[in-house]
């Protein structure tokens, strides 16, 4: 894959996926920074990795399974004490249109 030059459009597209507001002069700033970081990263493109299995975790153990038991109790009051906005036990957000 050829080196990536991060364009304004790419910054905006990635910002949308990341749910971040990036605007004005910041767009170019991010474009320059991302291009530099990706140039560093792209050094790996020269490495021959054919036939190498990706390694997503350093542990080669198998996932242990948990017994199907209810171990949690209602802690809504504690959890919602630090919530930005709640009502009647619900977390509130601006109206969502489906």
């Amino acid at each position: 894959m050829p080196p990536i030059t991060v364009t304004q459009d790419l910054v905006l597209a990635v910002a949308e996926l990341s749910q971040l507001n990036i605007d004005g002069a910041d767009i170019d700033d991010y474009a320059v920074d991302m291009t530099k970081v990706l140039a560093l990263v792209e050094q790996m493109h020269g490495v021959d990795t054919s036939g190498i299995a990706p390694m997503s975790n350093p542990t080669d153990a198998s996932q242990q399974l948990r017994a199907d038991e209810v171990t949690e109790t209602d802690q809504r009051e504690r959890f919602q004490a630090i919530a930005p906005e709640t009502d009647g036990g619900f977390y509130l957000v601006p109206r969502v249109v489906e």
């Binding site: 906005e85 009502d87 009647g88 036990g89 619900f90 509130l92 957000v93 601006p94 109206r95 969502v96």
Partner: peptide, 9 residues
């Protein structure tokens, strides 16, 4: 919810 959406998880 007064024009807001309530979330139940």
């Amino acid at each position: 919810y007064h024009g807001k959406t309530g979330i139940d998880l």
